[in-house]
Design a protein around this nucleic acid. Structure first.
Ligand SMILES: [Zn+2]
Ligand SMILES: [Zn+2]
Ligand SMILES: [Zn+2]
Ligand SMILES: [Zn+2]
Lengths: 159, 159
DNA sequence: ATTGATATGTTATAACATTGCACATTACAA
DNA sequence: TTGTAATGTGCAATGTTATAACATATCAAT
């Protein structure tokens, strides 16, 4: 699938591939890809959208995999920590990473209409902010880049 | 003062000037710069840091200017709406704008040590994300750019 | 068997944010 | 100046997101 933009794609493959990749990655790094963690990733992969922790928790609960907030937050911590998912700060929500294998600084297009999220990449010390940082001796460790706007479908609808 | 970086500066001027500018701006746009709104901006201006809504509320309450959450959230909405303050998404917190006069797309350096915030500028359709957006027909309306890292002082301390 | 490391379960609470309604103030035009 | 609409405030309740604190389970290495 194309990570950038809002193309249609074979989503079942998309999910299966990502889960497979996560398995491999966890095996390599000797991380435990437990049922809860796997299920949370699966839930996130269902849609290319950002889901809130409590929404995910509701799904989890249906499978009897945890009913209290810490269950989902711990799984999300694990996934985010290991690059399998990302937090969308402007929504206090989470989305599966579309290329968890490579190390990357993610950037997002977030549709305010349908809440769809597309992941792109950025550089840590790019542009004016990077210049400002170097100028002042600020050391950038992580960068949040999230564009809010309308995806083609939603722009069409509101036109 | 220098908006970019973490220089020392005459902070009392900094505050007075910003308040004056806000007054002027509100007069021009026929907006009501009420005591609550003024005081919240003043509180934000005290430090070049991000403050949480409830922290601000506590200060407000000391002056008898409101004791319930809506008081502060309304004022913050007003300030953010009119470009006098910005929301730092990664902290769920707020900071005063350092150049509220000009229309701009703000970007931030946020120190994870001392929570200091420096404001810089960015462009709406910059870099790879802009390219991705144009490519897919996504219309960017707002962009969140927040770098997390260590300011010179904190980097020194942790070395 | 004991220990240590990791993951999970459970309860409670902190922190952030909004809704709804009544009342007060301000703006503005008749 | 007075009526009226728009805007701002006070207050109570509620909703949403996130973490603290403590207990238990599992499993592997000693
Ligand atoms: Zn990613
Ligand atoms: Zn959309
Ligand atoms: Zn600004
Ligand atoms: Zn610092």
């Amino acid at each position: 699938m194309n990570a950038i933009g809002f193309p249609t794609h074979d989503h079942s493959h998309c999910i299966a591939d990502a889960l497979k990749a996560a398995e491999t990655l966890c095996a390599q790094r000797k991380l435990q890809f437990t049922p809860v963690r796997r299920r949370v990733l699966e839930i996130l992969l269902q849609e290319h959208r950002a889901l809130g922790a409590y929404g995910i928790l509701a799904e989890l609960a249906k499978d009897g995999l945890g009913s209290q907030p810490p269950a989902v937050y711990r799984a999300l911590d694990f996934l985010v920590q290991n690059g399998l998912a990302h937090r969308i700060e402007q929504l206090n929500a989470y989305t599966a990473c579309v290329h968890a294998d490579r190390d990357h600084a993610p950037a997002f297009l977030v549709c305010r209409g349908c809440k769809a999220v597309a992941e792109a990449e950025t550089e840590l010390n790019q542009g004016r902010l990077g210049i400002a940082a170097r100028h002042s001796g600020f050391v950038i460790e992580r960068i949040v880049v999230e564009a809010e706007g309308l995806c083609p479908a939603c722009a069409e609808g509101s036109a």
